[in-house]
Amino acid sequence: MTSSALRLVTPDSTGIEIPTRKNLPTFVTESGLRTELKKLSGIDAVGAEARIAKLSTRSLKKETKKYAIDLAISMVDLTTLEGADTAGRVASLCTKAMHPDANNLSVPSVAAVCVYPDMVANARAVIGSSPVHVASVSTAFPSGRASLAVKLLDTKDAVEAGADEIDMVIDRGAFLSGNLFKVYEEIVAVKAVCGTAHLKVILETGELVTYDNVRKASWLAMLAGADFIKTSTGKVGVNATLPVALVMLEAVRDFAEEYGELVGVKVAGGIRTTKDALKYLVVVNETAGSSWLTPEYFRFGASSLLNDLLLQRTKQLSGNYARPDRFSGD
């Protein structure tokens, strides 16, 4: 496994290309959608968690580890989603996204920066035409508690300000109360105003609670046109977990087999260490397969993860543990 292999999966100058969906059925009634979702298999929680326990014992060494660390860096959506965000904070984050290690230009850039809609213009200004994408959360992130009109306006704002990717939230209240068609229609509507921007649909799996719900919501979001399905906002008690990622990866794998469309997966919230990130990559590798091992189809939504990846990368290359202050705190 050489670093030249990595070039294939790093965003190049033309940026990340995700093809438009062509082959999806459309649903115009609640009952049609329900029939489609009913065919999904149940999930045995014990078995799913046992599978993860086993995959978590995989041991990545030597070249595989080096490769996986660079791959993980190239998959990071470097995120700041705080009320205290400022133009300056966003700018330094963007600089870091393009050159994660100012002292070492062999480090790949991350996939995207992820900010609130009102910060998109600031991010765009710094990112310019760099291959790093600008992603924006929208649709009354993180709760999603706003009217559809507001959600669409929110999205439009972000797109017009230059967002390449939109991270929307689903209406979990509607989903949990069984109003699946409302969830579907909202995603379709948001997708329509996204234009060429890629749509990531946040399921907020910590609020959906069961794996069966995660599978159902994943399928629903993919049917509605999601380019990515994403675990979490990072703003609730339970964020991304390995078993949830497993369930979502099984969903995208099965969806690709059924409809011929590849949908990406983004895990977000709580992933802070290289060790965690590599476990996710193992699950991607052994569940969905190599097609998903690229920034086009797998992302980490994270902030502190990047620095740990850089620390471990340095360790792998130099053989010594680096001091955390070697890297910028952004």
Binding site: M1, K61, K62, L293
Partner: peptide, 11 residues
Amino acid sequence: SQLGGLQYDNA
């Protein structure tokens, strides 16, 4: 051909 692209080094 559909399988994973990470070829684990010996551990």
